[in-house]
Design a protein around this nucleic acid. Sequence first.
DNA 1: TTTAATTCCTACTTGGTCAATGGGATTAGA
DNA 2: TCTAATCCCATTGACCAAGTAGGAATTAAA
Lengths: 156, 156
Amino acid sequence: MLSQRCKYALKAMVDLARVPGGSRRVSDIAEQENIPRKFLEAIMTDLKKGLLVSSARGKLGGYRLSRPPDLITFGEIIRLIDGPLALLPCASRNFYRRCEDCEDETTCALRRVLIDARNEVAAILDRRTLAAALAGSSQSQFATAILADDPAVSAG
Amino acid sequence: MLSQRCKYALKAMVDLARVPGGSRRVSDIAEQENIPRKFLEAIMTDLKKGLLVSSARGKLGGYRLSRPPDLITFGEIIRLIDGPLALLPCASRNFYRRCEDCEDETTCALRRVLIDARNEVAAILDRRTLAAALAGSSQSQFATAILADDPAVSAG
DNA sequence: TTTAATTCCTACTTGGTCAATGGGATTAGA
DNA sequence: TCTAATCCCATTGACCAAGTAGGAATTAAA
């Protein structure tokens, strides 16, 4: 599960992506997306430190995307705010950490499964950009339709 | 990320799957898998309540899988212990909950992406059984090899 | 030059959850 | 009856997420 913080970050980025060139004030984003203003301020600071947005101070200030929305993926936003996509650190590429309790990582049956899962999630989240998400992505509905026919996937 | 509790649960289930018919004591699993014994006791209780294992009390007691290992998936273990596979409740099938702050769910760009991600994870975790994980799954290595060639997936 | 509106910074609170631990009750085999 | 196992209940300590509070610094417009 993503943290509330991360969900807000994603919503704010999508919000900014809707105003291609322009910038937006925190208070406007907060109101539009139903996010506590003060909390969003802190989140925007994180996004700025991560170089995903840039800011202008003072009157007429605000935030804008630091790259065009077709060059910003969901994966990097999530990693910046919440960290690894993988379900365990030992199955992560960017945030790899060994399991203390695991004798031999190379033969761990659990790890192999979780690496596969991580790769699938990363394949989606690192390819999907803000621009693509706004476009509505017919690819999305296609994939959903296929999987819905499969009984093994009816849960989740 | 999975909780420590869930990681232990998965390891314990894999451990039990290695002893097909037989049962095992908590203390044996704990020692083998490097899990605090008392903590594992509590976890086994959860697994029992979820009907994934059954127990025998008294001397010569212990736990055993309540189904053959090829009929127990990683997905159901994770859902039992940690809950939803999806990254947000609004993208979950089994644990669906509406986002308070979301005006219109059907047009939420964020949700569409996260539903796709959830479907992919579920497709893997609901298909992969304890038995398959122990077998070593050459399918796993195949998928990993393909994805490693793709630059968009080099991170994670 | 004043004023208003914005980002930025530091600190704090509150509540919940995770990871474990401790002590003992219950059950069953030798 | 003794021993060794599961079971049950309660509690602890640490940590972190989510949000709040107040104000300092900065900038543009009036």
